[in-house]
């Protein structure tokens, strides 16, 4: 982007702050992978990046390209739907696998099978 670009200051500020919010949330989630103690706690951290983090970057991208090309660019909605559908499923599969492994080892951290 050069300074003589046709974008207004409003577009730049809106896109920039949405990008920073999304990237900040994704980075916080990834930092949670380091800071939280157990596997089940770490699973909560990833959701930050996949929900609001991804969401605000996608809104920033839709807004920016709609202004840049002066027509509605909404194909980012496909990624939004894909993330909304796939994230809970992959996390649930992962937690099932972890629970199964922990129970088979007789870990005291997880509640016993009903």
């Amino acid at each position: 982007m050069t300074d003589d670009s046709p974008l207004g200051l409003v577009t730049a500020v809106v896109t920039g702050s949405l990008l920073l919010l999304g990237a900040g949330l994704a980075a916080t989630g990834a930092l949670g992978l380091l800071r939280l103690g157990s596997f089940y706690e770490r699973l909560h951290a990833t959701t930050l990046g996949t929900t609001l983090g991804m969401g605000s970057v996608l809104i920033a991208s839709m807004f920016f390209f709609s202004v840049l090309q002066t027509r509605p660019v909404i194909h980012e909605l496909v990624i939004t739907v894909v993330m909304m559908v796939t994230t809970p499923i992959s996390l649930m599969l992962l937690v099932r696998a972890a629970l199964y492994r922990d129970r088979r080892e007789g870990s005291r951290e997880v509640p016993p099978a009903p």
């Binding site: 982007m1 990008l19 900040g24 994704a26």
Partner: peptide, 17 residues
């Protein structure tokens, strides 16, 4: 001005990521 704002926020976002 607007280009600089956008450029630096993108750079910062990329560093965070």
């Amino acid at each position: 001005m607007s280009g600089a704002v956008l450029h630096w926020s993108i750079v910062l976002a990329q560093l965070l990521l």
